[in-house]
Simulated scan of single mutants.
Amino acid sequence: MSVTRFPLTLRVTVSGATPDEIRENARAQALEFFGPDAELDVMSAEAEWTGEHDKHYRAIVAFRRVA
């Protein structure tokens, strides 16, 4: 028996200067993957300063589509 439907977790790496910018960039990538009408749940999100500029952060955000 083959399972064709199972939950996927998508991890995206984004950057930005503010939490809102990071959230919007991550959400845009997740919607591109899951589809524009997908309802998404954030499984985890971690941000860190890149050290490149005063206000430049990188974040890894994990999404799962709500069933």
Rank of each mutant, 00 (worst) to 15 (best):
M1R: 14
M1Q: 14
T4G: 13
F6W: 11
F6K: 10
F6T: 09
P7A: 02
L8K: 10
T9E: 09
L10P: 06
L10M: 04
R11I: 06
V12K: 05
V12H: 10
T13G: 13
S15C: 15
S15L: 15
S15A: 15
G16P: 03
G16Y: 08
G16E: 07
G16T: 03
A17K: 10
P19V: 02
P19I: 00
P19G: 08
D20L: 15
E21H: 12
E21K: 12
R23E: 15
R23A: 13
R23D: 14
E24Q: 13
E24D: 14
N25W: 12
R27T: 08
A28V: 11
A28P: 07
Q29T: 14
E32G: 14
F33N: 01
F34L: 02
F34M: 00
G35N: 06
G35Q: 03
D37S: 10
A38K: 08
D41R: 12
D41M: 10
V42W: 04
M43Y: 03
S44R: 03
S44M: 01
S44W: 03
S44L: 00
A45F: 09
A45I: 03
E46Q: 08
E46P: 04
E46H: 04
T50W: 01
E52P: 02
H53P: 03
K55V: 13
H56Q: 09
H56K: 11
H56Y: 12
Y57N: 08
Y57E: 11
R58W: 02
A59Q: 02
A59L: 01
A59M: 03
V61E: 00
A62G: 00
R64T: 08
V66P: 02
A67F: 05
